[in-house]
Simulated assay, not measured.
Amino acid sequence: MAARDYGQYDGITRALELVGERWALLIVRDLLVGPRRYGELAEGLPRIPSNILATRLKELQAAGILRRAPHSRVIVYELTPYGRELEPVVLALGTWGFKAMGDPRDEQVITPDAMTMALRTAFRPLVAADLPATAYAARLGPAQLLVRVDGANLDVTRGDGPADLTFAAGHAIRRLISGELAPDRAIATGVVQVLHGRGDLLDRFASTFHLAA
């Protein structure tokens, strides 16, 4: 039984009954990055009440969108094949929502899983296919990500590692990805700090990851 019944019979209505409740799609967003323990989901969604997280997980499990699975002697939540079909929907919503993003409010945070999905949303595989393989170590607020681009393939993982370019940026990385700020200006104004590697590789990053605002 859906948590909410709109009383209409069509695919969009049914989709909203399954994933339209508050927090549901953000749980799906984080699980698209990979399986997560309950505590990891709670950490990635710092404002979700614990009872709401537990309820949403039960609802999504009952709908066949996610499942509980043993992993290294702990229980994790992971998307089912049916749940993974939501990926293009989530990425399309990210593209659409990006157009309405302004500067963050003081209480809004950047999380590693959210930034991972943002990079997957902005990734342009057709552009990347013509560029040399490149690894970026990106420190985006508290999120530290290793971003590997090899042709049309993108791999984003948490943590550090060998990289051609290491850079730090805050929420204003949005201005680089949108094309509002050119890479050289982003460096000159301190929006992006090059920590290691050639600064001109930021041009390659901006070409590879782009969303028009």
Rank of each mutant, 00 (worst) to 15 (best):
A2F: 02
D5G: 01
Y9N: 13
G11Q: 05
I12Q: 14
R14Y: 13
L16S: 03
L16M: 05
E17D: 06
L18N: 01
G20M: 08
R22W: 07
L32V: 02
L32N: 09
L32K: 05
Y38M: 10
G39K: 06
E40I: 00
A42Q: 09
L45Q: 02
P46G: 04
I48V: 15
A54P: 09
L57P: 13
L57G: 11
K58C: 14
E59M: 13
A62R: 10
R67E: 15
R68Q: 11
A69F: 10
H71N: 03
R73W: 09
T80C: 00
L86G: 00
L86S: 02
V90H: 06
A92S: 13
L93Q: 06
L93F: 10
L93S: 04
W96L: 12
W96M: 09
G97P: 00
F98G: 03
M101S: 10
D103Q: 05
D103R: 10
D103I: 07
R105C: 12
E107W: 13
E107K: 12
I110N: 07
P112D: 07
P112R: 07
D113W: 09
D113N: 13
M115L: 12
T116G: 14
R120S: 13
A122I: 04
L126W: 11
L131D: 08
T134M: 06
Y136K: 04
A137F: 07
R139H: 15
G141I: 02
G141K: 00
Q144Y: 10
V149A: 02
N153F: 11
V156Q: 12
G159S: 14
D164A: 12
T166D: 12
G170I: 01
L176G: 03
I177K: 03
G179Q: 09
R185D: 11
R185M: 03
T189A: 15
V194K: 09
R198C: 04
G199T: 00
D200E: 09
D200S: 07
L201Y: 06
R204I: 05
S207Y: 02
F209C: 02
